[in-house]
Design a protein around this nucleic acid. Sequence first.
DNA 1: AATGAATGAGAGTTCATTCAT
DNA 2: TATGAATGAACTCTCATTCAT
Lengths: 205, 205, 205, 205
Amino acid sequence: MERFVKMNKCSFICRMRAKDKQKIEAIYKATLSLTQQMGFGGITMARIAREAGMATGTLYIYFKNKEELINSLYLYLKRQKAKNFLTDMNFDNPLKVVLKQMFTKMLMGIVNESAELAFLEQYHRSPFIDEAVQTEAMQLFQPFFDIIERGQKEFLIKDVKMDLIMAYLSGTIHEFSALIQDNRMPLNEDSFDLMFTMMWDGLKT
Amino acid sequence: MERFVKMNKCSFICRMRAKDKQKIEAIYKATLSLTQQMGFGGITMARIAREAGMATGTLYIYFKNKEELINSLYLYLKRQKAKNFLTDMNFDNPLKVVLKQMFTKMLMGIVNESAELAFLEQYHRSPFIDEAVQTEAMQLFQPFFDIIERGQKEFLIKDVKMDLIMAYLSGTIHEFSALIQDNRMPLNEDSFDLMFTMMWDGLKT
Amino acid sequence: MERFVKMNKCSFICRMRAKDKQKIEAIYKATLSLTQQMGFGGITMARIAREAGMATGTLYIYFKNKEELINSLYLYLKRQKAKNFLTDMNFDNPLKVVLKQMFTKMLMGIVNESAELAFLEQYHRSPFIDEAVQTEAMQLFQPFFDIIERGQKEFLIKDVKMDLIMAYLSGTIHEFSALIQDNRMPLNEDSFDLMFTMMWDGLKT
Amino acid sequence: MERFVKMNKCSFICRMRAKDKQKIEAIYKATLSLTQQMGFGGITMARIAREAGMATGTLYIYFKNKEELINSLYLYLKRQKAKNFLTDMNFDNPLKVVLKQMFTKMLMGIVNESAELAFLEQYHRSPFIDEAVQTEAMQLFQPFFDIIERGQKEFLIKDVKMDLIMAYLSGTIHEFSALIQDNRMPLNEDSFDLMFTMMWDGLKT
DNA sequence: AATGAATGAGAGTTCATTCAT
DNA sequence: TATGAATGAACTCTCATTCAT
């Protein structure tokens, strides 16, 4: 949908009213905060609105309905994660070094953004899931798949289906993150080395 | 519409124990079936009752409320799983053999009981979770912890905290099960060997 | 869905709980009353429930949703009308006498049941209308169509399409009823004769 | 959606009358179009504004609220109808000819302006109705009443209360229009003759 | 013990109206 | 004048729980 650019005020400083980006972020923030506080089941449109400091109806200006709000937030987080993930990566390093970098980034990300994690985890088994949204989210991590394939070509990583590799990585990283979040593993280099070693030993040829 | 004439009250020798157990199992079965069909969110007391062939009110005779029903079912499944898990295990075999046996049992169990799996997975992030219940569930798997400790004493398994070992095992087994359920990995010995090898390589010293 | 007949109380006076017919009538009555008071637009489920002396949720035990409630009431009124309409009719009388009888009945019915009229009128342009329901309603008045056809065969009534006859009758009766309801025409035999004459003159050959 | 560059404010000679009228007509047109498309219940201020190519708030510059908008449109249509109705009428013709002319005009008007009809019909039982507005609308048709009175004085039309005559005419014309709109009566002279004859026979002495 | 109708709080969503720009 | 984001009351409908039978 296009909009009208209004110039009637003949104002040189023409700031378009724009459907406030800040507001969308306030909604996202409120939703994440609520998910962490009360779980996915505790999210209601009324509560999100109150937490974000606006009226219930306002949510429906920015999102068609609850489902769309949830899916948008999911995609937003995934994009953000993918962006962070690719920043400052040096893919020319030896494979194991690259993987260690990635592994560390992932765990660090999770630690710093526990609300996001809670949301993402609960999203997957929710009735809101949208296949198209998930597909798009998956594509953001293509560079990651490339690294694995490179490792397989160099005979460093087990030559098994990518599905199996992904399942293995996702399972371990997920659970390791949970350990850190629950303070059952400390947040230091030794601890990371330990976890990476387990993961890597299973992966390598 | 047919009708049953109930005579319980007219019976002088009124032992209800057996009946109760049957009813409770009917409720459990109905709940599992519904979880698989419509997800955790689709479970309502009315639906459980209908699926189990009884009135809504009857559920409240056997369970104080929905939360208790869910938690009871969780514990019931965990106990069942632990029982199956320990049956026919020969702990005198070499460690790796024992672990392979366990691994296989776990994945097989998951495949045969997909309704149970759906329930357990969704339970964990639900608002129904009860810490005491989870603790009890954990204790059922003590024999498993013993095996791991034995492996560490024999210098076969990495000498890291049990928490880390458990996180690693739980993460991989979970994801591997999902692969099988989604038919992205076949259900045969080769496939199991592949998965076990990955898992074991990460675990071993 | 099966049901249980409970006899455990060994009560000789076994009154089935039955989804209270009285309640349905209370709902109908409340709906009619509200339609008259505040128009079709003023009907809300909450108000119907309050007027009928029950909780909102209770309405949904008896009717799937608002639409079904409205359509059920419509059909109920139409059936009632058709029943009244056919009672005490002597179809052996000369045609004009039969028609006068019908005409009188219709107007009398309308006068006695002004709430019903308000409802029926507003139903027709509402978003609730259900074609199947209307078709069934139409069939209830078959005996009426038969009379008209008989009149046409006897060359007493204009030989035009039934649609046209019905439009003519429905239009005049409708408006005449409104006159009486608004007290712009008295409710006596002279007045009825006048109205019937106008109607009949247009109808006859 | 296109964009308008508005310069009104920059114009020193700012006469808005013409503009206003255009806007009001755009609003009326949009409202009629929506009534036809989605019924009276489908009209929302937001939709009217969008259809009319303006902002919601703008509607409130021209009309105090929704009720006033609807009532204004009603009166506007009635006035227009009355104007059309009186154009090209030759009241010197014999009474029956004049009536036939009127009857034809009315039905034709309905056929040509089905959106208007949909609106008028639904207006009558709406919560927006305003008595004063209706009274004014009625007065527009005075010339029509005069014709009827003339007919009564000439002993051509039944000597009954004007109310009864109006009810009779309004009822039949209404229903006949509906027949034509639903394509259950063709739009030709024979068809019009048939309908007029029915109506006239009821009316004449 | 078993029933299922009844309850009513609370969910998601819509929309007439306001108001800062 | 014109805008359209913001508001919040009011709507329909759901569901865990109760209770008379």
